[in-house]
Amino acid sequence: MLIFFDTETTGVEAKDRICAVGIACETHLHEELIHPGKKMPPAASAVHQITSEMVAEAPEFSRSESCRILKAFNLPSNTLVSHNAPFDLSMLSKEGIEWQGDVIDTLKCAKALMDDLEGYSLQFLRYELRLYREEEAFFAAAGVSVAPHRPLSDALHVRMLYDYLLDLADHQKLVDISRSHILLSRLPFGKYAKKRIEEIALKDPGYLKWMLDSLHDMDEDLRYSIDYYLRND
Protein backbone atom coordinates (compact mmCIF):
# COMPACT_ATOMS: atom_id res chain seq x y z
CA MET A 1 0.00 0.00 0.00
CA LEU A 2 1.13 3.55 -0.73
CA ILE A 3 1.12 5.92 2.26
CA PHE A 4 1.24 9.58 1.19
CA PHE A 5 2.57 11.50 4.14
CA ASP A 6 3.38 15.01 5.27
CA THR A 7 4.40 16.67 8.52
CA GLU A 8 4.35 20.23 9.73
CA THR A 9 6.97 21.03 12.35
CA THR A 10 8.23 23.70 14.72
CA GLY A 11 11.30 24.13 12.51
CA VAL A 12 14.13 22.23 10.88
CA GLU A 13 16.68 22.03 13.71
CA ALA A 14 17.52 18.95 15.77
CA LYS A 15 15.45 20.34 18.66
CA ASP A 16 12.30 20.74 16.54
CA ARG A 17 9.30 18.41 16.57
CA ILE A 18 6.13 17.52 14.67
CA CYS A 19 3.12 19.78 15.20
CA ALA A 20 0.76 18.27 12.59
CA VAL A 21 0.48 15.11 10.51
CA GLY A 22 -1.32 14.33 7.26
CA ILE A 23 -1.84 10.78 5.94
CA ALA A 24 -3.56 9.85 2.67
CA CYS A 25 -3.94 6.24 1.55
CA GLU A 26 -6.61 3.90 0.26
CA THR A 27 -8.05 3.34 3.75
CA HIS A 28 -7.41 6.65 5.52
CA LEU A 29 -7.56 10.39 5.00
CA HIS A 30 -6.21 11.68 8.28
CA GLU A 31 -5.04 15.03 9.61
CA GLU A 32 -4.19 15.81 13.22
CA LEU A 33 -2.59 18.57 15.25
CA ILE A 34 0.17 17.36 17.56
CA HIS A 35 1.47 19.00 20.73
CA PRO A 36 5.19 19.45 20.00
CA GLY A 37 6.26 19.96 23.61
CA LYS A 38 7.56 23.45 22.96
CA LYS A 39 6.40 26.92 22.00
CA MET A 40 5.62 27.40 18.33
CA PRO A 41 8.19 29.77 16.78
CA PRO A 42 6.65 32.65 14.80
CA ALA A 43 8.74 31.70 11.76
CA ALA A 44 7.11 28.25 11.69
CA SER A 45 3.61 29.68 12.20
CA ALA A 46 4.22 32.04 9.29
CA VAL A 47 4.60 28.99 7.02
CA HIS A 48 1.85 26.65 8.18
CA GLN A 49 -0.40 29.01 10.21
CA ILE A 50 -0.36 26.69 13.21
CA THR A 51 0.00 28.52 16.52
CA SER A 52 0.83 27.49 20.08
CA GLU A 53 -2.82 28.09 21.01
CA MET A 54 -4.01 25.70 18.31
CA VAL A 55 -1.90 22.81 19.63
CA ALA A 56 -2.32 23.57 23.34
CA GLU A 57 -4.95 20.83 23.80
CA ALA A 58 -3.60 18.51 21.09
CA PRO A 59 -2.13 15.11 22.07
CA GLU A 60 1.56 14.42 22.21
CA PHE A 61 2.67 12.31 19.26
CA SER A 62 2.97 9.12 21.30
CA ARG A 63 -0.68 9.46 22.36
CA SER A 64 -2.01 10.54 18.98
CA GLU A 65 -4.17 8.75 16.44
CA SER A 66 -1.44 9.56 13.90
CA CYS A 67 1.05 7.49 15.89
CA ARG A 68 -1.37 4.56 16.07
CA ILE A 69 -2.04 4.67 12.31
CA LEU A 70 1.61 4.94 11.35
CA LYS A 71 2.63 2.10 13.64
CA ALA A 72 -0.10 -0.07 12.12
CA PHE A 73 1.07 0.80 8.60
CA ASN A 74 4.78 0.43 9.36
CA LEU A 75 5.22 -2.80 7.41
CA PRO A 76 7.86 -3.89 4.87
CA SER A 77 5.11 -4.26 2.28
CA ASN A 78 4.03 -0.58 2.49
CA THR A 79 5.70 2.38 0.77
CA LEU A 80 5.88 5.83 2.34
CA VAL A 81 5.71 8.65 -0.22
CA SER A 82 6.76 12.11 0.91
CA HIS A 83 8.24 15.33 -0.46
CA ASN A 84 11.66 15.61 1.19
CA ALA A 85 11.25 12.20 2.77
CA PRO A 86 14.55 12.23 4.73
CA PHE A 87 13.25 15.18 6.74
CA ASP A 88 9.89 13.56 7.49
CA LEU A 89 11.60 10.28 8.36
CA SER A 90 13.97 12.10 10.72
CA MET A 91 10.99 13.67 12.46
CA LEU A 92 9.33 10.25 12.84
CA SER A 93 12.60 8.83 14.16
CA LYS A 94 12.57 11.43 16.95
CA GLU A 95 9.19 9.98 17.94
CA GLY A 96 10.48 6.41 17.94
CA ILE A 97 9.21 5.28 14.52
CA GLU A 98 11.77 3.82 12.11
CA TRP A 99 10.03 3.17 8.78
CA GLN A 100 10.30 -0.49 7.69
CA GLY A 101 9.07 -0.35 4.09
CA ASP A 102 10.21 1.32 0.90
CA VAL A 103 10.34 5.11 0.64
CA ILE A 104 9.75 7.39 -2.33
CA ASP A 105 11.03 10.94 -2.01
CA THR A 106 9.15 12.96 -4.62
CA LEU A 107 11.55 15.88 -4.12
CA LYS A 108 14.59 13.78 -5.04
CA CYS A 109 12.74 12.08 -7.90
CA ALA A 110 11.65 15.43 -9.35
CA LYS A 111 15.23 16.70 -9.24
CA ALA A 112 16.54 13.53 -10.89
CA LEU A 113 13.92 13.35 -13.63
CA MET A 114 13.46 17.08 -14.34
CA ASP A 115 16.84 18.71 -13.79
CA ASP A 116 16.11 21.98 -15.60
CA LEU A 117 13.41 23.46 -13.36
CA GLU A 118 13.84 26.69 -11.41
CA GLY A 119 12.58 25.17 -8.15
CA TYR A 120 11.43 21.92 -6.59
CA SER A 121 9.30 22.81 -3.59
CA LEU A 122 5.93 21.07 -3.54
CA GLN A 123 4.02 24.30 -4.16
CA PHE A 124 6.37 25.35 -6.96
CA LEU A 125 5.86 21.99 -8.68
CA ARG A 126 2.12 22.30 -8.18
CA TYR A 127 2.17 25.29 -10.52
CA GLU A 128 5.15 24.42 -12.73
CA LEU A 129 3.65 21.05 -13.64
CA ARG A 130 0.12 22.49 -13.75
CA LEU A 131 -1.17 20.04 -11.17
CA TYR A 132 -3.61 22.76 -10.12
CA ARG A 133 -5.64 22.12 -13.27
CA GLU A 134 -6.85 18.79 -11.90
CA GLU A 135 -6.70 19.51 -8.18
CA GLU A 136 -10.24 20.86 -7.75
CA ALA A 137 -11.82 17.62 -8.93
CA PHE A 138 -9.15 15.49 -7.20
CA PHE A 139 -9.63 17.19 -3.82
CA ALA A 140 -13.42 17.28 -4.16
CA ALA A 141 -13.46 13.53 -4.73
CA ALA A 142 -11.47 13.12 -1.49
CA GLY A 143 -13.71 15.57 0.39
CA VAL A 144 -10.72 17.72 1.32
CA SER A 145 -10.15 21.45 0.83
CA VAL A 146 -7.01 22.71 -0.88
CA ALA A 147 -4.93 24.32 1.88
CA PRO A 148 -1.22 24.59 1.03
CA HIS A 149 1.15 23.92 3.94
CA ARG A 150 -1.50 21.99 5.85
CA PRO A 151 -0.46 18.35 6.10
CA LEU A 152 -3.41 16.50 4.55
CA SER A 153 -3.63 18.94 1.65
CA ASP A 154 0.11 18.59 1.08
CA ALA A 155 -0.11 14.79 1.31
CA LEU A 156 -2.72 14.84 -1.46
CA HIS A 157 -0.52 17.12 -3.58
CA VAL A 158 2.28 14.57 -3.03
CA ARG A 159 -0.14 11.96 -4.42
CA MET A 160 -0.75 14.12 -7.51
CA LEU A 161 2.99 14.65 -7.96
CA TYR A 162 3.64 10.91 -7.61
CA ASP A 163 1.09 10.22 -10.35
CA TYR A 164 2.83 12.79 -12.57
CA LEU A 165 6.24 11.20 -11.94
CA LEU A 166 4.89 7.80 -12.98
CA ASP A 167 4.78 9.17 -16.53
CA LEU A 168 8.56 9.63 -16.31
CA ALA A 169 9.58 6.51 -14.40
CA ASP A 170 7.87 3.43 -12.99
CA HIS A 171 7.28 2.86 -9.28
CA GLN A 172 10.42 0.76 -8.74
CA LYS A 173 12.58 3.35 -10.48
CA LEU A 174 11.20 6.01 -8.13
CA VAL A 175 12.12 3.80 -5.18
CA ASP A 176 15.62 3.26 -6.60
CA ILE A 177 16.15 6.99 -7.17
CA SER A 178 15.04 7.72 -3.62
CA ARG A 179 17.56 5.21 -2.23
CA SER A 180 20.60 6.59 -4.05
CA HIS A 181 22.49 9.81 -4.55
CA ILE A 182 21.49 11.76 -7.63
CA LEU A 183 23.93 13.68 -9.77
CA LEU A 184 22.64 17.24 -10.00
CA SER A 185 23.66 19.21 -13.08
CA ARG A 186 23.07 22.78 -11.89
CA LEU A 187 23.93 24.76 -8.77
CA PRO A 188 20.67 25.81 -7.08
CA PHE A 189 21.96 28.94 -5.31
CA GLY A 190 24.93 31.25 -4.86
CA LYS A 191 26.74 33.46 -7.35
CA TYR A 192 26.59 30.69 -9.96
CA ALA A 193 22.93 29.83 -9.38
CA LYS A 194 21.44 27.80 -12.27
CA LYS A 195 24.88 27.36 -13.87
CA ARG A 196 26.13 23.86 -14.66
CA ILE A 197 28.28 22.48 -11.86
CA GLU A 198 30.56 20.79 -14.41
CA GLU A 199 31.38 24.19 -15.95
CA ILE A 200 31.94 25.81 -12.55
CA ALA A 201 34.34 22.99 -11.63
CA LEU A 202 36.45 23.93 -14.66
CA LYS A 203 36.28 27.72 -14.31
CA ASP A 204 36.18 28.28 -10.54
CA PRO A 205 36.84 25.07 -8.59
CA GLY A 206 37.88 27.11 -5.56
CA TYR A 207 34.32 28.35 -5.14
CA LEU A 208 32.96 24.81 -5.10
CA LYS A 209 35.64 23.70 -2.63
CA TRP A 210 34.69 26.62 -0.42
CA MET A 211 31.06 25.48 -0.51
CA LEU A 212 32.03 21.96 0.54
CA ASP A 213 34.15 23.24 3.43
CA SER A 214 31.81 25.99 4.64
CA LEU A 215 28.22 24.83 4.11
CA HIS A 216 27.95 22.01 6.62
CA ASP A 217 24.17 21.63 6.24
CA MET A 218 24.32 21.30 2.46
CA ASP A 219 21.88 18.94 0.75
CA GLU A 220 23.54 15.51 0.48
CA ASP A 221 22.89 15.21 -3.25
CA LEU A 222 24.38 18.64 -3.91
CA ARG A 223 27.48 17.72 -1.88
CA TYR A 224 27.77 14.46 -3.79
CA SER A 225 27.42 16.27 -7.13
CA ILE A 226 29.99 18.98 -6.35
CA ASP A 227 32.46 16.38 -5.15
CA TYR A 228 31.83 14.28 -8.28
CA TYR A 229 32.52 17.12 -10.72
CA LEU A 230 35.59 18.31 -8.79
CA ARG A 231 37.04 14.81 -8.97
CA ASN A 232 36.25 14.45 -12.65
CA ASP A 233 37.11 17.90 -14.03
Rank of each mutant, 00 (worst) to 15 (best):
M1A: 15
M1V: 15
F4M: 06
F5S: 11
T7W: 09
T7F: 15
T9D: 14
G11L: 03
G11K: 13
E13M: 02
R17I: 01
C19Q: 11
G22T: 13
I23W: 13
A24Y: 14
C25Y: 05
C25D: 09
E26H: 15
L29V: 08
I34W: 10
P36Y: 04
Q49I: 08
E53L: 01
M54Q: 11
V55S: 08
V55A: 06
A58C: 03
P59H: 02
F61S: 06
S62K: 06
C67D: 01
I69E: 01
I69F: 00
A72W: 00
A72M: 01
S77N: 02
N78W: 01
T79I: 06
L80I: 02
V81S: 00
P86F: 01
F87V: 01
S90F: 02
S93W: 04
I97S: 09
E98I: 08
E98W: 03
W99N: 04
I104W: 04
D105S: 12
T106Y: 03
T106N: 04
L107P: 05
K108Q: 12
K108V: 13
K111F: 01
K111H: 07
K111G: 00
L113C: 05
L117M: 06
E118A: 13
E118P: 13
E118Q: 09
G119D: 15
Y120I: 06
S121R: 11
L122S: 05
Y127P: 08
E128H: 13
E128M: 08
L129I: 03
R133M: 13
R133Y: 12
E134H: 14
E135S: 15
E136S: 15
F139V: 05
A140T: 14
A142N: 07
A142Y: 05
V144T: 04
V146W: 12
A147T: 13
A147V: 07
P148H: 13
H149N: 07
L152A: 11
L156T: 04
L156G: 07
V158E: 10
R159A: 12
R159T: 05
L161Y: 01
Y162A: 08
L165A: 05
L165Y: 00
H171W: 05
Q172E: 02
K173P: 00
K173W: 01
L174Y: 00
L174F: 10
L174D: 04
S178Y: 07
R179N: 07
I182K: 02
L183Q: 02
L187W: 13
P188I: 14
F189Y: 14
K191M: 11
K191W: 11
Y192M: 10
A193K: 15
A193F: 12
R196N: 08
R196P: 12
I197L: 04
E199D: 14
I200T: 06
A201Y: 02
D204A: 09
D204P: 04
D204K: 03
G206P: 03
G206K: 03
Y207A: 09
L208G: 13
L208M: 09
W210M: 03
L212S: 05
D213L: 11
S214F: 05
S214R: 12
H216M: 06
D217G: 13
M218H: 09
E220A: 12
Y224P: 03
D227G: 12
Y228R: 03
Y229C: 10
L230F: 04
L230D: 00
L230Q: 00
N232H: 09
